[in-house]
Amino acid sequence: MNEDDVCSDTDEICVSSIFLEGEDINMSISHAADSIGLKEIPRYEVKIIEEDDWMKGAQESFHPVEVTEGLWVVPKWITPPDIQAMNIILNPGLAFGTGDHPTTKLCLLLLHDCIKGGEHILDYGTGTGILAIAALKFGAAFAVGVDIDSQAIASASENATLNNIEPDKLQLHLIASQTSSSCRDDWPSRVVEGENAFEIDRVTHKDKYDVVIANILLNPLLNLADQIIFSAKPGAIIGLSGILSEQVQNILQKYSLFLEGIEVSKMDDWACVSGRKRKNIDIC
C-alpha cells in the first residue's frame, strides 16, 4: 500500500497485489471491493512481471539489519557485516519476518532481554521462523513454531537449517485451514503437519511454555487469546505484537485479566505488549 509515492492525489491509496497467471483479477477485485462496502470497482491496471525480476527485486530490498548491538539479521546471499556478532541468516521466501519490520525488531528485543537459558518457546505465526530461531540462539532449549501458511513453514524449515538449528531443538507445525494444504511426504523431519484446524489444541499443551511470542495481527491476537494464555506456564512471559500503537488499548482490554507487569514498547507506529501470565487464573 502506498499513500505518497505512487499516487499524486493525496486522497487516494494505491494497493499493489500479485496474482497467479490466469486468475480472474476482475472477480478478485470485485470481491475485495464488496468486502469493504465499495459501490464501484476501483480503477486498476495489470502488469506482467517476470518471476526472476520479482525475486531479484525482493532480494535487493532485503539488507542486513542490526537489531541491537551484536545482533544482526542477514540475507543468506550476503556476507555478514560483523562475523563476530550473533547473525541470524535468512532466506525469507514468501514468508513474513526479515528483521526489518518494527514489530519483528520489537519481538527480537523482547526475546533478547527475557531469555536466560533453557526455556521452552512457542512462536505463534512463525513466518520465516526468525523469532523461534533467535530464541534458540539466545539460549532457549526448545522451540515450537506454528503457522497456517505452508510456504511459511517451508521457509522456517530452510532457515533453521541455514542457522544450524538441530531438528530436535525446533519443531514446526502447519496448522491446516481451509486455504492451506500440502503433502506430508515433502516435509523435513522437523515439520509436523496439522490434520485439521483443531490441531493447534494438540500443539499448545496447557502450561507448557516459558515464553509465548505472537507477532501476528490484532484480530487473531484477540481471537486466540485463550489459546495463547492456555499454552503458557504460570509466570511465563507472553509477547504480543503485529499491532499498531493505536490498537494497544484493544490488547490491554483483552489480556489485562491474564497478565501482570504489563509493558508496552513502541517503534515508529507499531507496538509490542508483554507481561507475565498470572498464577491464579484458570483457562479451560
Rank of each mutant, 00 (worst) to 15 (best):
G194Q: 08
N280R: 05
S231F: 04
E12Q: 07
L71R: 05
D268W: 08
I243Q: 01
D82G: 01
I175G: 12
H112S: 03
S177R: 14
R43E: 13
A58Q: 05
A135Q: 08
I115W: 05
C107W: 00
I262S: 09
F19K: 10
G118C: 07
P234E: 10
S30G: 08
C107E: 06
M267S: 13
L240I: 12
Q151T: 05
I251F: 00
K279V: 02
L174I: 10
I216Q: 13
A176S: 14
S155I: 06
L90D: 02
K105P: 02
R278S: 13
V211L: 11
T161P: 00
L110A: 08
G194L: 05
L240D: 06
A197R: 10
L38Y: 06
H120C: 03
S17C: 08
I83Y: 01
P167Y: 02
G139S: 05
N215Y: 00
L170H: 09
D168I: 05
F19Y: 15
E50V: 02
K266G: 04
I25E: 10
N91M: 09
P80T: 13
M86Q: 07
G125V: 00
Q247T: 14
F230Y: 15
K76N: 06
I229L: 06
E199H: 13
I88V: 12
S245T: 14
V248I: 07
D282M: 13
T104K: 08
I148D: 09
N163I: 04
S189G: 00
D149F: 09
S8F: 10
E195A: 06
S17A: 14
A32Q: 10
F142W: 14
T161H: 08
L131C: 06
P234N: 07
I121V: 04
G127Q: 03
C284E: 14
I25M: 10
S189D: 10
K76I: 13
C114S: 15
C7Q: 07
K76M: 12
L174K: 01
I228M: 15
F138V: 01
I200D: 15
E45L: 08
D185M: 10
L172S: 10
S177E: 11
I148T: 14
H205F: 04
L224C: 13
P42S: 02
V191N: 00
L174P: 03
T103S: 07
V144D: 12
D210A: 09
W54H: 07
I148L: 09
H112K: 12
F142P: 03
G127C: 01
L240R: 03
C7R: 00
C7S: 04
Q227M: 07
G125D: 02
S241K: 08
G117K: 01
C272A: 14
L259S: 00
A154N: 02
